[in-house]
Structures are given as structure tokens and as C-alpha cells.
């Protein structure tokens, strides 16, 4: 069943132009969205989160149209959006307090559980400015997950982290995803990252941009070095590269 459906969405926004974008996200699936920079990936993410309204078309989550921001969806932004004036614990327990789903004691307990799981319990009283980039990202994931959203939107979440931290964070997210299978849209501009995390890769391309390709990544998890050296992986990588870098007409002919 599709959890998210986007149909015929168009938007002129800043320098992004999206036209007639349609796709669906399977429930409990991890879908990657790629595309050249400035093609409107973030705009699309913001529309799914309900921050920006489309000029035309419709977006829906479990059949209900998306019209504004709400606690059933959450977005993790490119740049950290943690509130630097609140401690880690306050940042994480904000969600259930704000949405009114838990009392203060319960929210605190749930936040501490999540922090424990993310290996951040000892840092609960620190401020975000006192944490490393990777730790901040984990706090954001805990903050995002505490309300049990139905859709998780990650907009280039690990950009700016060093390679080691980045790989650890990818592994980390996959582990969490395997536990809760929260429907996820993972935006990235890194080909390797897309193939390490994704079950399917959507490619946004063209001016105005639309979904140009949808590529299944039918590789087993965990994506060990062996998996990432397999014939199958190389084949998918080749197709994805073609989708990303070759002029549209050529790939259109080559695929089918």
C-alpha cells in the first residue's frame, strides 16, 4: 500500500521549478530521492512536510491531503535545526509536550529512553552547540522519532559530516529503520549513500523537473562490503549513474 502519494505537483519557488511531479512512497519502505542540485528536492520535501503549498497538484499521506505541517510527518533538515538554547533533553521532549500527547514526566521518560538508545544519555543536559556534528544528527533523529511520525523526511541528513561519521550514521539509521520501518524519504546527492541506504531510488531531473527514473535497489541488508562489491550492485550503480549523468534521451532509449 502506498503511504504517500504525490500527483501532478507543480511549483515555481525561488529558482526551483517542479512540474507535474508524481510518485508514491510505499509504506514501511526507505525510498531515496536524488537529482542535480537546485532541481527542487528540498522544495518537494518542504511540500511533503506541509511548509510550502504546491501551485498545482496534490500530496497525501495515507489518503489524507497534506495542507499544513503536523506531527504525523517530520523533516530532518540539511543544516541542524536543533534549538541551541535548549538542552538535548528539552529538544527531544519538546515533541510530545507540544503535541499534547504526554505529560511532562512521561515525555521526559520517553525522551530519556530514546537518548539511551541513541547513546546520548550522558549528554542530556548539554546544549547542541557543545556536541559534535554526528551527535547533533543523532539528537535530531531522536527528536524526530519521539512523536512516532508516519513519514520521515530526511533532507541530505548526513551532509557535512566526515566520511567515517557519515558511514556510521548511515549504518545507524538503517538499524533504527529495521526496528521500526518508518516510511522514509531520504534525499541525498551522493550516489554511494543512495545505494547503501535505499530500497528504491527516485531521480528528479529536467527543467522543469519531474521524476525521470525509478530504480529498484534489490540488494540485501546489511549492505556489507561483499554486497557492495557484487555484480548486482555494480549493475544497479551503472544504471543509476546513467540516470543521473547521461542526457535524458539516451537513457530513455537505453532503459525499457
Amino acid at each position: 500500500m502506498a503511504a504517500v502519494s504525490v500527483s501532478g505537483v507543480s511549483k515555481r519557488y525561488a529558482k526551483d521549478v517542479l512540474e507535474d511531479v508524481s510518485f508514491e512512497l510505499e509504506a514501511a519502505a526507505l525510498t531515496v530521492l536524488m537529482g542535480p542540485s537546485g532541481c527542487g528536492k528540498t522544495t518537494l520535501a518542504c511540500m511533503l512536510a506541509g511548509y510550502i503549498a504546491p501551485d498545482a497538484g496534490r500530496l497525501a499521506l495515507e489518503g489524507r491531503p497534506i495542507t499544513e505541517a503536523g506531527p504525523d510527518r517530520i523533516m530532518v533538515f540539511q543544516e541542524t535545526a536543533l534549538w541551541h538554547w535548549m538542552t538535548v533533553l528539552d529538544n527531544v521532549m519538546f515533541g510530545p509536550r507540544a503535541s499534547g500527547t504526554m505529560g511532562p514526566a512521561q515525555a521526559r521518560k520517553k525522551a530519556l529512553e530514546l537518548l539511551e538508545r541513541f547513546g546520548l544519555r550522558d549528554f542530556k543536559d548539554r546544549y547542541p552547540g557543545q556536541l559534535s556534528g554526528g551527535m547533533r544528527r543523532r539528537v535530531e533523529l531522536a527528536q524526530a522519532m519521539i512523536n512516532n511520525p508516519k513519514l520521515m523526511i530526511l533532507d541530505e541528513p548526513f551532509r557535512g559530516l566526515d566520511v567515517m561519521t557519515r558511514e556510521l550514521m548511515q549504518e545507524y539509521y538503517l538499524k533504527i529503520f529495521a526496528e521500526n520501518r518508518m516510511t522514509t524519504l531520504f534525499i541525498t546527492s551522493e550516489l554511494e549513500e543512495a545505494l547503501v541506504v535505499g530500497e528504491r531510488v527516485l531521480v528528479l531531473d529536467g527543467t522543469p523537473a519531474r521524476i525521470a527514473h525509478s530504480i529498484e535497489v534489490d540488494l540485501p541488508y546489511p549492505r556489507t562490503p561483499e554486497v557492495l562489491a557484487s555484480e548486482r550492485y555494480l549493475d544497479i550503480k551503472k544504471r543509476l549513474m546513467a540516470a543521473l549523468y547521461l542526457p535524458e534521451q539516451q537513457t530513455a532509449q537505453g532503459e525499457t
Binding site: 512536510a49 506541509g50 506531527p71 523533516m75 519538546f94 507540544a98 512523536n147
Partner: peptide
């Protein structure tokens, strides 16, 4: 983003 995040958390 600081305001959006708060809205998304309800």
C-alpha cells in the same frame, strides 16, 4: 527551520 520544526512537532 527553527519555526518549521516546532510546527511539525505539533
Amino acid at each position: 527551520e527553527h519555526l518549521w520544526l516546532a510546527r511539525s512537532l505539533g
